[in-house]
Nucleic acid binder design. Structure first.
Lengths: 343, 343
DNA sequence: ATTAGCACTCAATCGAGTAGAGTGCTAATA
DNA sequence: TATTAGCACTCTACTCGATTGAGTGCTAAT
């Protein structure tokens, strides 16, 4: 059975209505509220077809129909198809303050997005490839303490405090700094590993005693550069949805938000455009009755993180896709203008 | 009317029971479950007295009694009084990994505390006095970019990226580093402000063009060192409490958790011991039916942050006070062992 | 001073009855 | 032949009165 124009129209009407009301929709409602030009009986027949085809579901025999995940998928696809061709122009935001912490900016945007959408938003902070290290600096802070500083090409800085078991002369730092910058900054992960395993110890010469600690720190920093941080905002918005009056569901949702590793997976960027995962399309059992709209934000075209909206499968996809697109464009613009040129 | 021994016993029984069951308690229940050695009628009379005295409340005329905030206060005070005299010894935890990010450690402890208590926990990350700056370092990362690094005496490092409008020669950094360390590191806030306003510009001489940016950055860093970060975990636990089946209440709670500035105020340390705020004892309207148990964690005796447990006024104060005390002691130990000696 | 007993109160629960939205099917209609 | 009107049927949600039961306050007896 083909999904002809009339069926599409009716399906569209059912989904739109359900998104607004959260109530199952009957044929009569459709006939009255949407001028399809058909009687309720005809619509009834079509709805039975749509159910058979898997686009709609019936909570119980004498209830109206609600959209299935497949139904939402149809809806989202048709929105996205429409959308991809007329990218709205965005206001160009120039930086206001020069010095802002990266995380703070992203959090702020996630917060704004939560506020305007009235949904829970999650943001994944920069994931940086370890071959993007631009500079390393060792800074003595005490006779037996130093800070190991890593700067990446997007200006993100990570630092580690090293406790040394032996005092290190100040002049040695110069030597170490040069060595590390030469051998690590800008190098590929493979090269770095090779250097650490083979050459480092010999090259250190008289200061070989800090080799272990140095290697550990460098490995840790490489590992951490690949790690990400998750931030959630507007968490309480989920409770605005009547479907979450069920406390068990609500509890699952909040558990999910506390489960950072899982959120991290969920927000892993997979396509280069707005990515919508509806209900069971999500990889995780925990998310089977939630939808996620996610998209990446960038610095000068390079993906640095993800922002997502999480809500019930009944969500206003049209509006949310629009809003998340606007916000991430803005965010990418702002970040690009701050971390604008090569470091 | 005095709170005699018999009244105390009954009050204690009512509160203990209510903490377990979340149901109003009647006189008969008390008579049966707790061997006070009195009939329900007598207990009934005593309970009427306790209500008159403000320790108990009645949700409606023919219901049992529940503890008022004043009742909980009595309960908590008697626990604390008991507690303050026999501080249990704690296992001494030595550091396992040398390099860990401060925030990660605190978050981990907050998470563990949430898990063992089954309550929502919040942690306030270090608040540092600006007169505690130990070292400042300017690091060139490109001809027109540099990193401004601040190290405090607890080893916390903050960094800021400066975009300069003009290129700066590498030799100048040495000069700036010395100047800033001499004039800012270890100085009081007042001294720093004076230096920034009066002397800095002249001292800069030929590099005066970076004065504005430098001053702004320093001011910002001073401001940020006083700011704090809030982390919440175990948020979904609140839904385990039957009193939070009321969605409005639940929503308020989650709004509260999203409201970082307010949480910040709530976690402001006020006393040097475990601090319990019951219902209306909290400053904020938003928290009038929540209780907070909070206490500080320290590095070598200096307060660096706060951890708190948030839950309904009916909470198991005895157990929670014990557990938060254990955890913060552990945390303080660990932090002190990592950031052990003077930097 | 304590307690037994009793009348009273009130929230919660249960069940029958009803309303109403919606369906599927059949027969009439354009 | 496609559409529609009509009807019997289904099922949930809601209402409403009755009932239950825990709890109280008061009084009189111990």
């Amino acid at each position: 059975m083909p999904l002809d124009d009339r069926k599409k129209k009716i399906l569209y009407a059912v989904i739109t209505d359900y998104i607004m009301t959260a109530e199952p929709i009957g044929s009569r409602t459709i006939a009255k509220k949407y001028n399809i030009g058909l009687s309720s009986a005809t619509i009834r027949n079509e709805m039975a077809d749509l159910e058979e085809m898997g686009y709609l579901e019936q909570p119980h025999t004498s209830a109206g129909r609600i959209p299935s995940d497949k139904g939402y998928r149809f809806y989202v696809d048709s929105i996205l198809r429409n959308y991809i061709n007329n990218d709205p122009p965005i206001s160009h935001n120039t930086r206001e303050e020069i010095i802002v912490e990266f995380d703070e900016i992203v959090k702020k945007y996630a917060r704004i997005l939560a506020n305007i959408t009235h949904h829970t938003t999650v943001a994944k902070m920069p994931k940086l490839n370890p071959d993007r290290i631009r500079k390393i600096q060792l800074i003595p802070v005490a006779s037996n303490k130093m800070i190991f500083l890593v700067v990446t090409d997007t200006g993100i800085v990570k630092n580690y405090l090293l406790n040394l078991c032996q005092n290190v002369d100040r002049t040695i730092f110069e030597f170490l700094n040069n060595l590390l910058n030469e051998k690590i900054a800008g190098k590929s992960e493979k090269d770095i590993f090779e250097f650490l395993q083979k050459d480092l110890r010999q090259m250190l010469g008289e200061v070989a005693f800090i080799a272990d600690e140095l290697i550990n720190t460098i490995l840790l920093s490489l590992k951490q550069l690949q790690e990400t941080d998750i931030y959630a905002d507007g968490t309480s918005h989920i409770l605005d949805f009547p479907e979450y009056k069920d406390l068990g569901k609500a509890k699952n949702f909040f558990n999910l938000l506390d489960n950072k590793p899982l959120l991290n997976e969920v927000l892993e960027p997979e396509v280069d455009f707005i990515d919508v995962r509806i209900g069971s399309e999500n990889k995780f059992e925990e998310m089977k009755d939630l939808s996620v709209i996610k998209t990446t934000y960038k610095i000068n075209g390079r993906v640095v993180g993800t922002i997502g909206i999480i809500g019930p499968t009944r969500m206003d996809y049209r509006r949310l896709i629009n809003e998340i697109n606007m916000m991430t464009k803005e965010l990418s613009n702002l970040l690009s203008s701050i971390y604008n040129d090569e470091i």
